[in-house]
């Protein structure tokens, strides 16, 4: 214990004191709790059904098989149809891409108008928008269905895109409004003096220098829309059911023998898109949720 170090090193990590040990032990236990489900998902999806019936859910697969993944993607059944999750995946993509583009386009221009081109009443509408974001969706669902039906778009991709645009608007508008408000006013004034108008300033001056906030908005929307279940099940229509809805239908289907390995492969596949985005964009993801956290 009393051996002294003679190496001429700089900051050498000190020996673990009991309190440091407790800190790492606590973090480690927590990490196990958070990682366990991911581990169980992966392990289960790589086993055959006989092994699942005999073994325990935590043991690694004795014989690795990718068949469950193939089945989940290509031929798992939801009720009558056995076309696999790929249908839901492409539906989710068809919902996701236009929803993200439209919602961000509208909210960014709106946030810009709110921060740089305030008009009479603009703050009132904005306040209603922010307070409204706390209203439980259930309160507005039925009248929205009526509106969609009257517009003749209920049960179509258009309806679900409109719904995502509506319910993404409060947080996105807030995000863009605060970002543009924090940019130096001189930029805006200089552009105005040069004779640039509303759209010119936005498209040529502000938007190009606001890339980080657009990235945050895209991450926020992609994860939010991909993970949506309620709106998809109500507004998208049966043939456009997003991946989450289809996943639930596959796993919780009442008929047939339960194939837990296929179910877990399907679950991972559905979680993969937001997970990949999360792991690739850690910093921006945290910024996005932090922005969501400091509403108002």
């Amino acid at each position: 214990m009393s051996v002294t170090s003679v190496e001429p090193s700089g900051a050498r990590p000190r020996r673990l004191s009991p309190s440091r040990f407790m800190i790492y032990a606590g973090l480690f236990v927590a990490a196990v709790y958070y990682l366990l489900p991911l581990y169980v998902m992966v392990v289960t999806s790589l086993k055959g059904m006989p092994e699942i019936r005999l073994g325990n859910i935590f043991s690694p697969p004795m014989e690795i098989t990718f068949q469950p993944w193939v089945t989940a993607w290509d031929s798992a059944c939801t009720g009558l149809y056995c076309e696999g999750l790929k249908v839901g995946f492409w539906n989710s993509m068809k919902i996701l891409i236009p929803s993200v583009i439209v919602s961000i386009a509208i909210a960014s221009v709106n946030g810009y108008a709110l921060s740089n081109w305030k008009f009479k009443g603009s703050e009132v509408f904005f306040t209603i928008l922010i307070i409204g974001s706390f209203i439980p969706y259930q309160v507005m669902l039925y009248p929205l269905v009526i509106i969609m039906r009257e517009l003749g778009i209920f049960g179509t991709l258009t309806a679900i895109i409109v719904v995502h645009t509506i319910f993404g608007m409060p947080i996105l508008t807030l995000l863009f409004r605060n970002y543009f408000a924090a940019l130096p006013v001189e930029l805006f004034k200089a552009a105005r003096v040069d004779g640039a108008g509303f759209w010119q300033i936005f498209l040529q001056v502000l938007a190009p220098m606001s890339l980080p906030i657009f990235v945050v908005a895209v991450i926020l929307q992609v994860t939010g829309i991909w993970n949506d279940f309620l709106f998809g099940v109500i507004f998208a229509g049966t043939e456009n059911y997003p991946m989450t809805v289809q996943l639930n239908n596959i796993v919780n289907a009442t008929q047939g023998v339960k194939e837990y390995n296929v179910n877990m492969a399907a679950t991972i596949l559905t979680g993969a898109v937001p997970l990949i985005i999360y792991f690739l964009s850690g910093r921006y993801f945290v910024r996005g949720i932090a922005a969501g956290a400091v509403k108002g």
């Binding site: 973090l27 927590a30 990490a31 958070y34 990682l35 366990l36 489900p37 991911l38 169980v40 998902m41 289960t44 699942i52 019936r53 325990n56 859910i57 994860t223 991909w226 993970n227 949506d228 279940f229 989450t244 996943l247 639930n248 796993v251 837990y260 179910n263 877990m264 679950t267 559905t270 979680g271 937001p274 997970l275 985005i277 999360y278 792991f279 850690g282 993801f285 945290v286 949720i289």
Partner: peptide, 29 residues
């Protein structure tokens, strides 16, 4: 550690529910 603690938040409630349904499965869990 931060990445590990936060990743479940990126997952949907459907995915969360199905994983835990499996872990807590009365027969195999």
């Amino acid at each position: 550690f931060r990445t590990i603690f936060l990743y479940p938040f990126a997952l949907s409630f459907i995915v969360t529910g199905l994983v835990w349904q499996w872990i807590l499965n009365p027969t195999f869990g």
